[in-house]
Write a protein that binds this DNA or RNA. Structure first.
Lengths: 229, 229
DNA sequence: GTGAGCTTTTAACAATCTTTAACAGTTCTT
DNA sequence: AAGAACTGTTAAAGATTGTTAAAAGCTCAC
């Protein structure tokens, strides 16, 4: 089995080396670069599976680097390390195509957890484990065609409806984190988008009301859970 | 049951005692040992959930101890305390199987933060095995659907109600430690959350009052016990 | 370009969930 | 026995979510 190759861009020498060693010990294949410029040079001639980029770096900062990376590769997961927990920074990061971000100071645990989460996610997406059809009680949902079938009646979903239902299905019987859903579907997780999401939840509930065993329940302050009992 | 048991190995008497007291105040069950040798002796005959090891100790240093511990238990999380921020040391630590490290001097908050990060992860890993239905006297409780049935009447519980009842059920006829419940459900175990929990206990008692054989009794200063007689 | 028909967001209000406050009762400590 | 700490219970305040409808955006044929 191939080791997962990680590009690490971090200007703090201690932290950089430390992270590199930690990732290697955890059996990843990690390359560490001291600034965005050097990282980018390596990126364009090497295959990486994941990028961990510090936001504040001399020569070329993390956001700029991320944008350049995205021009070449729209798929590769990017995790930002940011010293400030300022909301603006984080939003900026997501616009640059981040999959996750970690605020310093962080624990190795936390980093590892997020790395693994990101990898699980992309694995699923890539490996085609991504379902072309979900069975939800008596319903059948096809994300590709955005069709929801119940018996012989078919209902065409809108893009947002379909995206949200797909996320719920992918996390069936588990909590779909509100912010995660917002970040993946709406990109920006502000108040209005959150309300918009609530509206879509209400719509989906209406569509799914024929089968009482199917329910979308709210987990207060956390998110929603699609359950099939 | 419930209290998380921590093995603490630290040769500095002041720091060791301080850490032990602090962890206990934060309602962990902490054993402190003055060197690696003594710590190991206790480790092999006691169940611990987490190890915090100082790197520099007489008789047996932290790395050696960690390696020995790993021979017995590959899973238990290990956090190193290291005086030097020398990279070599930390790298050595990771190789010995560390899950995280903390450089001295560190704040108690920092330690706690990392301890809790580690615990959260292992807790998630362990949470796999769980019942889908509990019978409580004449009641039937389904944590997944958050439904509490009594005869043919069904009551939908809120998330917090359900989470708490689930913990009580998982520890039926045993004491559910107050702080354990708080940390599991409320994450932070402060005064207000404790009062909040009391409110929920009152609610659950109300829901369960139809069957007099079912009772939630308080164990003063310890927690609550769901009994079925 | 423009308007019909659709999708999505915003607004508004109702309902629900959780926390906080307040006070009464209990158990422990000294 | 009296004070301190802990628990029981109810109600309020605060926050989140449910739901519907109107407003704003978008698309595409004309």
């Amino acid at each position: 089995m191939q080791k997962i190759k990680i590009l690490l861009a971090e200007d703090d020498e201690n932290l950089g080396m430390l992270l590199r060693e930690y990732l290697i010990v955890k059996s990843y294949d990690a390359d560490w670069f001291i600034n965005g410029e050097k990282a980018y040079k390596s990126f364009i001639k090497t295959h990486y599976d994941l990028c961990i980029l510090d936001v504040m770096m001399p020569v070329k900062d993390g956001y700029t680097l991320a944008k350049e990376i995205r021009l070449t590769n729209a798929e590769i997961p990017i995790i930002f390390l940011t010293a400030k927990s300022l909301k603006e920074d984080i939003i900026e990061g997501f616009k640059a195509g981040a999959d996750d971000y970690i605020c310093k100071p962080f624990s190795m645990e936390e980093l590892l957890f997020r790395v693994e989460a990101v990898i699980r996610r992309t694995r699923k997406d890539a490996a085609g484990i991504q379902q072309s059809e979900y069975k939800i009680g008596d319903y059948v949902f096809s994300p590709n065609t955005q069709l929801l079938r119940y018996g012989n009646t078919e209902h065409k979903l809108t893009t947002k409806e379909s995206d949200l239902l797909k996320l719920l299905c992918a996390n069936k019987n588990m909590i779909l984190d509100r912010n995660f859903a917002l970040k993946t579907i709406w990109v920006d997780d502000n108040y209005f988008n959150a309300r918009s999401m609530d509206v879509y939840i209400a719509k989906l509930r209406k569509y799914l009301k024929e089968d009482p065993r199917v329910q979308i329940i709210n987990v207060h302050g956390k998110g929603f859970k699609l359950i099939e009992s």
